[in-house]
């Protein structure tokens, strides 16, 4: 007989009724615990614990609004059942996207700098410049460490030249108007332009780049050219650079503000560049 084959433990279980379902009232955090017991197909008792967080949302509504909630459906909505999905809630979270200001971050930095420059508090200027340049350099070092940045190739000793097409380099090729007719006379002309409002910056640290200098000097006025002397072998700069300003008074202000300015634990020396002839 099947009944005799059953083990005593099983029969004991059969007699045993399932423990009642218990529901604990919400605790301090509003968590309600429901403990249920049920049997599965194999006759094992399964205990399931459901924890529900109960929260109360209080909403004030108009009395008429409450009355109107009881309205009977009419028209096409009359025979409507829940499965009709006339109303569905979007599964996707739709954010209210902030519209970015037209001003880019670069522009913002620049305008911030300008406001700082206007206030004649030198410590503020120095502080913000330092932060900015330090951050720049750190970013670059990180990129270099990752191997993302190839060591910069030293450009031609003579700032220009390089990639710019020169007259006659290719017959019939496009030559910008500024480079046309570059004869002996033109050479001297451009040379003079290069030396106009030129500021010599010395005692630069080796890893200073053109961008750093641009950031450092651009608050004083528009810059026409920046030239950094690089070492051919190492690709590091040789500790001096020339910055040309469009206007002389901008250059004058830059010299006044930045001469003796501590940059990258070195003290910068900023002065008017000597004309080429005198230097040699």
């Amino acid at each position: 007989m099947a009944a005799t084959k059953m083990r005593w433990g099983d029969t004991l279980d059969d007699d045993d009724t399932l423990p009642p379902t218990t529901v604990t009232p919400p605790d301090a955090k509003g968590v309600k615990t429901i403990t249920e017991y049920r049997k599965n197909d194999n006759g094992d008792i399964i205990k399931s614990v459901t924890r529900i967080r109960v929260s109360k949302v209080e909403r004030k509504i108009y009395k008429v609004e409450h009355e109107r909630r009881k309205w009977a459906r009419f028209g096409a909505a009359k025979g409507q059942v829940a499965g009709d999905s006339v109303t569905v809630q979007a599964a996707e979270e739709i954010p209210l996207d902030r519209v970015q200001k037209k001003q880019t971050r670069e522009e913002k930095k620049e305008s911030d700098m300008k406001t700082v420059m206007q206030s004649s508090d030198k410590s503020a200027i120095v502080g913000s410049l330092k932060d900015m340049l330090y951050k720049r350099r750190m970013e670059r070092q990180l990129a270099a460490a990752r191997g993302g940045l190839a060591p910069e190739k030293p450009p031609e000793e003579d700032g220009e030249g390089g990639s710019l097409p020169t007259a006659g380099s290719k017959a019939g090729g496009y030559v910008p108007p500024s480079l046309r007719n570059r004869g002996a006379a033109g050479e001297g002309d451009s040379m003079r332009r290069r030396e106009e409002n030129s500021v010599r910056v010395t005692n630069l640290s080796e890893d200073t780049r053109e961008d750093d200098l641009r950031e450092l000097f651009s608050p004083f006025g528009s810059i026409s050219r920046i030239y950094i002397a690089y070492d051919r072998e190492t690709g590091e700069n040789r500790g001096f650079a020339f910055v040309n300003f469009m206007y002389k008074d901008d250059a004058q202000r830059a010299i006044e503000k930045l001469d003796g300015y501590g940059y990258d634990n070195l003290i910068l020396r900023v002065e008017w560049a000597q004309p080429r002839a005198e230097r040699s």
Partner: peptide, 30 residues
């Protein structure tokens, strides 16, 4: 006025009434 009802009109001939709190359709005006 209270904002609990929403009326919608379209280029089809049946304006519709909705509950604004949960978007349930209350009825259409045929």
């Amino acid at each position: 006025r209270e904002g609990d009802l929403l009326f919608s009109c379209a280029k089809d001939p049946h304006p519709t009434l909705w509950y604004s709190s949960d978007g349930q359709r209350v009825g259409t005006y045929i």
